[in-house]
């Protein structure tokens, strides 16, 4: 067996005339945390559903744990933990019942599941909520329960589709902490996200997807290094003057992006750029110096921003 748990070549998914995944190549190694970053409709979820062995590919090849998901769906799914984009917990059952029932689907014995539930309630910080109906849980708790549920069978690969979308900042941080612990324990993670901060925190390596294709692949730091500068200066002149000002600003930085509400000036030392333009008598309404992020990488690769 190779050390790659997932290996895809020319993977394609069509729905009628629409191409959701347009022939992509990628692999995921054991113990790795692999991310699919891209805007809504980039083909991330379709790719995830193929890896989860629930949706069949229409072209190309993919091996998951050395098996073809079109032929061995149930055998592959026995080794996966899936956290879908939309929680599909049974809201009428309690926290504990949800975990128990799900464990049964994997054919696990009651005694094994019962022990496992204690461990998972602790991990998901839901010990006090064990007898509470899922209906009554907050969004963050539901998400943690969904993750705990996916771990009931001790999967080889944990798949998370937009794990923190729709959560408030505090709930997101709790969740990231939990996922980071799993990563430390050596669980292989496959994550889709359209949040660059999430991708930067959780992924060892990621692919940037757009319109069903992979635009780039590297570690978060590697992508930033290749496709962006160290820092960015964001300046605003008011939406009417941005385009006009960009002509004057061009010469002061390596690359410039004009967005409807602001201008992004890429340079390794953004502070210095700001000093320079002020010396030239250019005074933006607001200015901000920040580090480059995956958002900038995405902008560079596609000419569009991630969250539209």
């Amino acid at each position: 067996m190779t050390t790659n748990l997932i290996q895809a070549h020319g993977l394609t998914k069509r729905y009628g005339d629409f191409v959701a995944v347009a022939g992509i190549d990628f692999h995921v190694a054991k113990g790795e945390s692999f991310g699919l970053l891209g805007p809504n409709g980039a083909g991330k979820s379709s790719t995830m559903r193929i890896i989860a062995a629930t949706s069949q590919r229409t072209g190309g090849d993919i091996k998951i744990l050395d098996k073809d998901p079109n032929l061995h769906g149930p055998q592959i799914r026995a080794h996966l933990g899936v956290v879908p984009q939309q929680d599909n917990l049974d809201t009428e059952l309690t926290v504990e019942q949800n975990l128990f029932v799900y464990g049964r689907y994997f054919g696990l014995s009651s005694s094994f599941i019962k022990n496992k539930i204690e461990e998972l309630l602790d991990f998901a910080q839901l010990v006090e909520k064990r007898d509470v109906k899922v209906d009554a849980l907050s969004g963050g708790m539901k998400r943690r329960l969904t993750i705990a549920r996916a771990l009931i069978s001790e999967p080889d690969i944990l798949m998370l589709d937009e794990p923190t979308t729709g959560l408030d900042p505090q709930a997101r941080h709790i969740l990231w902490d939990r996922l980071f612990r799993l990563k430390e324990q050596g669980v292989t993670l496959v994550i889709t996200t359209h949040y660059m901060d999430e991708a930067e925190q959780l992924c060892d390596r990621l692919v940037v997807m757009d319109k069903g294709k992979i635009m780039a692949e590297d570690s978060p730091a590697g992508l930033i290094k290749t496709y962006s500068t160290k820092e960015v200066l964001e300046v605003r002149f008011g939406s009417e003057r941005n385009a006009e000002m960009s002509e004057k600003l061009k010469q002061h930085c390596e690359r410039i992006e004009v967005l409807p509400d602001r201008i992004l000036m890429y340079a390794d030392d953004a502070e210095k750029v700001l000093e320079e333009i002020i010396k030239q008598g250019i005074h933006p309404i607001t200015s901000l110096v920040r580090r480059s992020s995956l958002e900038d990488v995405f902008l560079r690769l596609t000419g569009r921003s991630l969250i539209e």
Binding site: A52, T54, G73, P74, Q75, R77, A78, L80, V82, P84, Q86, N88, L89, D90, T91, Y102, Y105, F106, G107, R149, A150, S153
Partner: peptide
């Protein structure tokens, strides 16, 4: 309404 079949189908259950 609850999409729970999709959750069940993520396990070995067909």
């Amino acid at each position: 309404w609850g999409k729970i079949f999709f959750g069940i189908n993520s396990t070995p259950i067909t």
